[in-house]
């Protein structure tokens, strides 16, 4: 079922598959990046361990800046470092950065096109026990609206590692949205990753599921169920770069299947599904059902419980697609 050209993880559906988190990928990748490039600087607002950057701090104490719990200051300091030729990564939980410091990200960073990398961890429901107050379900909307800013939402651990390498090469601001929760590995060390490119994880002909972030796995599982139980051939397209989006692949798949669903761990209003719908509405108007969190805040619970309750797990996708195909 999986696209064989992408070197994806063949063991993805096995019971004892390995689970790994995006933040672990970030911590490992940034250490390597720091070894390779001496202009890489990390800033944290009292979340060093949480972002897995302790090894970087130990190895490069002079390139590690603790700002205390002050995300606004951190963002503007990042701009000052970038305008002086360094490549700062400002790291925190997504709920604080880019939320608390959105104005600083807009003016100090994006308006100057400053080369600051913004890393928001614990995105979506992945900070689930902490409750609705701590769940970032609006950060895609907040960031994709900003000129000059690239927005990347990797689908797993390996892709997060690749994204860190690639975002360094961009001369301008980038937002990296990462997951705290360990999730199944869809990609491998040998899976290609380019900023701005969508990847067809499964080829299909009946309907397309566009997805971003770690819910890519829910999309894959839905495709598997629909194929086995209903003989529906679903195309699964992962879109790790939300801005700039890969219009060509989005429109190409929509032309092929004629029916689309978007899946995100985020509000459907203004987020990833909105971005896909905007492209389709302007370039190739087909129906796109946005699946995501619908105009509500989250609550405490386990990661999977919340995905189930708020309608973004595989069985919701299966149900939605069956309804869509029945109606059409």
């Amino acid at each position: 079922m999986l696209n064989t050209t992408l070197n994806l993880n063949e063991e993805i559906f096995l019971q004892d598959r390995e689970l790994k988190s995006g933040r672990d990928g970030f911590g490992e990748a940034i250490l390597k990046l720091g070894e390779e490039h001496e202009d890489v600087v990390i800033l944290t607002a009292d979340l060093e361990e949480s972002l897995r950057v302790t090894p970087f701090r130990k190895k490069f104490p002079d390139r590690f800046i603790e700002t205390g719990i002050a995300e606004q200051n951190m963002a503007s300091i990042g701009a000052g470092l970038a305008l002086s030729g360094l490549v700062p990564f400002i790291t925190s939980h997504a709920i604080f950065s880019p939320y608390r410091n959105w104005d600083q990200i807009r003016l100090s960073i994006c308006f100057s096109n400053a080369n600051v990398k913004i890393v928001g961890s614990h995105a979506g429901f992945s900070n689930s026990p902490d409750g609705g107050a701590a769940e970032s379900l609006e950060d895609i909307a907040l960031t994709r609206v900003l000129p000059n800013l690239t927005v990347i939402s990797p689908i797993d651990y390996w892709q997060t590692k690749r994204a860190v390498e690639e975002m360094y090469k961009i001369k301008g601001p980038v937002y990296l949205r990462i997951c705290k929760e360990p999730t199944p590995q869809i990609t491998t060390e040998n899976t290609p990753f380019e900023v701005g490119k969508a990847y067809t994880l499964v080829e299909g002909t009946d309907i397309t599921i566009f997805n971003t972030g770690t819910v890519a796995y829910e999309a894959l599982e839905a495709a598997k169920i629909l194929k086995a139980g209903h003989k529906i051939n679903v195309e699964v397209i992962a879109i790790p770069t939300i801005k700039p989006a890969d219009k060509e692949n989005i429109i190409g798949s929509a032309k092929k299947t004629g029916k689309c669903v978007s899946l995100e761990e985020h509000q459907i209003n203004g987020g990833f599904g909105s971005a896909v719908s905007e492209i389709l509405a302007e370039e190739f108007p087909v129906f796109n059902l946005r699946i995501g969190v619908n105009n509500t805040f989250g609550e405490s619970g386990s990661y999977q419980e919340l995905k189930d309750k708020y309608g973004i797990s595989s069985h919701h996708v299966v149900e939605a697609i069956l309804n869509m195909l029945k109606e059409k």
Partner: peptide
């Protein structure tokens, strides 16, 4: 021009970033 400004309160942080950059480099 060394920075963008307008929304108040951001310049001292940017200046501190530049001063940190001087120390690092």
């Amino acid at each position: 021009l060394e920075t963008s400004s307008g929304s108040l309160g951001q310049g001292l942080s940017q200046a501190a970033g530049m001063a940190m950059a001087a120390k690092i480099q």
